[in-house]
Every structure is written in C-alpha cells, then in structure tokens.
Amino acid sequence: MRYLMMSKAGGQAPDERLFAEMGKFVEELTAAGVLLATGGLAPASIRVASVDGEITVTDGPFAEAKEAVAGFALVEVRSEAEVIELAKRFRRIVGDGEGYIQQVF
C-alpha cells in the first residue's frame, strides 16, 4: 500500500538537532525500503480549473503560508496503521503542526 504523507508549514524552526534526527529517520525508512520519495514544496502554486469547458490558470499562492503544504513523503507500507505510526514519529521529530495522509492508488 502506498501513501502520500503531506506536512503543512509550521512547527519549530530547523536547527542542527532537527536535521540530525530527520536524517536518521529518513535513513532508517530508506534502508527498510519504505521511503520511496520525499521533497519540499514551494509556497507558490498554479491553479488550473475547468468550469463548463472553460479552463482558467491562476498563479498562487492561495493559502496563508502556515496553511500551505510544505513537504511530502511517498511511502510503501503494509497497512494504514503503519503509515499512521510513521506520521506520528515524523510529528514527534518536527514538533507542532499538521499533516495529511492519503492512499495512492
């Protein structure tokens, strides 16, 4: 089962401890074959919408910086419970904030 884990901006400002702990977490998940991809996302985005066949393209950002998705991880796990546990571990490392998990089909 593949899941996309997304994290909103927020939490503590990065420091050496955070980078070290996150580095260990990423190495562990990579070695276990769980982590497929990670990345940070720019705060700006482009909206492409279609209404009655009319397509519009609008430059962002569309949300306040604290509401924007700031990064993601694509993981492959055996169950929903496993991805929730990974998300909890991630949140313990980075501190306060909010994220989302969605299954990838």
Rank of each mutant, 00 (worst) to 15 (best):
M1L: 14
T58K: 13
L41S: 13
E82W: 03
G10T: 09
V57N: 06
K24E: 15
S45V: 03
L35G: 06
L29I: 09
A63C: 01
A42G: 05
G60S: 08
V51L: 14
E82S: 01
F105Q: 09
V34D: 09
E64K: 08
R92F: 08
R17C: 10
G33V: 06
G97N: 06
M22G: 02
E28D: 15
G11L: 02
D15F: 00
K88F: 04
V75I: 10
Y100R: 14
K88H: 14
R91C: 12
M22H: 08
L86V: 03
I101Y: 00
P61S: 03
E85P: 01
A49E: 12
G11H: 03
E28C: 08
V34A: 07
D96P: 02
R17E: 15
M6S: 08
L74M: 13
G60Y: 03
G99P: 05
V104L: 13
G97Y: 02
K8Y: 07
I84Q: 14
V75C: 01
G10P: 02
L35W: 09
V83E: 09
Q103H: 15
V48I: 11
V83Q: 02
M5E: 11
Q102P: 04
I55D: 02
S50G: 08
M1P: 04
A70C: 01
Q103D: 09
S79R: 10
T56D: 12
S7W: 04
A49T: 11
G33Q: 07
I46D: 02
R89W: 10
A70G: 10
D52N: 14
M1D: 01
G39F: 03
S45W: 04
S45K: 09
E80S: 12
F90S: 12
A37C: 05
A63E: 15
F62P: 04
S79A: 07
A68G: 07
E28F: 00
I84C: 09
E54I: 07
Q102G: 09
R47F: 09
L29G: 06
P61F: 05
I46C: 11
I84E: 13
M1W: 04
M6P: 04
G10L: 01
A49D: 11
V57Y: 10
V104W: 14
R92K: 14
V94S: 14
E54W: 12
V77G: 06
A70S: 08
R47G: 06
G23D: 08
V69M: 12
F62S: 07
L29N: 14
E16K: 15
R91G: 14
R78G: 15
D59H: 01
D52G: 10
D59L: 00
L18I: 02
A44N: 05
V94G: 05
F25T: 00
D96V: 13
T30F: 14
Q102A: 14
